[in-house]
């Protein structure tokens, strides 16, 4: 039992190290090489789309799927839409978190959705 917990903790630290290694590899890619390297322009333009594609690939399934299947009427999607509206309209950085969580909690706990 204790061994299991130990190895789980070790596994987590290895995972964190692996994630951290991507930080150094990407940020250091050209700075550490110390050369005046240039990125091929086509690759540079393609890479611009990586963050938007990746964030969306993480967020959209979480908002659309509830209990394994696509469900267009679920509390997470409703809260997510509120977050999008709030974040596009107001600059306050706290507001999307406060209102998004409020909508989710009211729908889940208050309305029992």
């Amino acid at each position: 039992m204790i061994e299991g917990v130990m190895s789980e903790g070790l596994w987590l630290w290895l995972t964190l190290l692996a994630i951290g290694s991507t930080t150094i590899m990407t940020r250091g890619s050209f700075i550490l090489a110390g050369e005046k390297g240039r990125l091929p322009p086509a690759l540079q333009r393609a890479l611009r789309y990586a963050p938007a594609a990746a964030l969306s690939a993480l967020v959209v399934p979480d908002l659309l799927l509830d209990g394994g299947g696509v469900d267009p009427f679920n509390p997470k999607l409703a809260a997510g839409l509120v977050v999008i509206v709030v974040a596009t309209r107001w600059r306050n950085p706290w507001l999307p978190f406060i209102l998004g969580m409020a909508v989710l909690l009211v729908l889940r706990k208050g309305a029992g959705w």
Partner: peptide
């Protein structure tokens, strides 16, 4: 890695 890829552009 994908989420950090933009840093390759910054680094260059």
């Amino acid at each position: 890695m994908v989420l950090n890829l933009r840093f390759v552009i910054f680094s260059a």
